[in-house]
């Protein structure tokens, strides 16, 4: 299989109330192109699932949305990504507030080797969000409650975050992201290292978070995409093949490649 010439994305790629807009995005790792001319919208307060076979560029694309790829020297990005109509790749944009607005949860739970409390307080502290100890305590409690972890950890806030179970660690990382009050949360296969019960909890949480946040989630599990997302984007070999409402993608996909992937013919 190779790149499709003169490809345009099928389906409903654009949104009426866009939060993030990608326009003609190309991504290169050195000489190798990883993303080809991707344009679509992520609507406010929607959960969009990015699916596709391994190496299709979905994680790479996700990492462009809060400029995490800046930390990779050989990575180069062309095209525009707009957050609330403002280009995040504009030279005037500072990545520090950008990443506070667009938070990220990673594949493997990565709590810092600090206490549960300090893990949550890390972001608010570096961004100066709390004026007093009381305020910081409130932020920590609120974040843990939103992440559904408060009842499990309220008695041991000062024990190490690395001592929690895998699922708890991942919810801790979500709480840590929520604590800086982002507008968008990017999730890169957040459940791939978790067991089914922990996964179910996270999925429930994602559904609740949709009220306040815009969420883009990369996943390898089509059931998960079907359960948590409103729209689904299918990536293939660095191209965006199709974006449609999730029901439609899994019942009547427009493109033959999407159909082949969701019916398990490759991937």
């Amino acid at each position: 299989m190779s790149i499709i010439e003169n490809h345009t994305t099928n389906g409903q790629a654009f949104s009426e109330a866009p939060k993030l807009q990608a326009r003609n995005v190309d991504v290169f790792y050195g000489d190798k192109q990883a993303i080809y001319d991707v344009s679509f919208d992520i609507g406010a307060n929607e959960v969009i699932a990015l699916i596709g076979p391994s190496g299709c560029g979905k994680s790479t694309f996700l990492r462009c949305l809060n400029r995490m790829n800046d930390t990779i020297d050989i990575c180069r990005i062309e095209g525009d990504i707009l957050l609330d109509e403002e280009n995040i790749y504009d030279p005037k944009v500072d990545v520090v507030p950008l990443r506070a607005r667009v938070g990220m949860v990673f594949q493997k739970p990565n709590p810092f080797p600090k206490s549960i409390y300090d893990n949550i307080a890390y972001g608010p502290r570096i961004h100066g969000l709390a004026q007093s100890r009381v305020e910081l305590d409130e932020i920590v409690e609120r974040s843990l409650q939103r992440a559904g972890l408060w009842n499990e950890v309220k008695d041991r806030l000062h024990s190490p975050g690395t001592g929690l179970s895998g699922g708890q660690q991942q919810r801790l990382c979500i709480a840590r992201t929520i604590a800086v009050d982002p507008e968008v949360i990017l999730m890169d296969e957040p459940c791939s290292a978790l067991d089914p019960i922990a996964t179910a909890k996270i999925e429930e949480l994602i559904d609740e978070l949709r009220e306040n946040y815009t969420i883009a989630i990369v996943t390898h599990s089509m059931q998960q995409a079907a359960r948590v997302s409103q729209r689904t984007a299918y990536f293939h070999m660095g191209q965006l093949i199709e974006v449609n409402p999730t029901d439609q993608v899994f019942t009547t996909p427009e493109h033959s490649l999407t159909e082949a992937y969701i019916t398990g013919r490759f991937g």
């Binding site: 809060n66 995490m68 930390t71 990545v95 520090v96 507030p97 950008l98 990443r99 506070a100 938070g103 990220m104 990673f106 493997k108 990565n110 709590p111 810092f112 080797p113 890390y122 972001g123 570096i126 961004h127 990382c173 840590r176 992201t177 800086v180």
Partner: peptide, 15 residues
């Protein structure tokens, strides 16, 4: 030190 810790910190907007 695992890269994931750095990513986690940068992802929160730390310098």
């Amino acid at each position: 030190v695992p890269q994931s810790l750095r990513d986690g910190s940068y992802g929160l907007g730390a310098t």
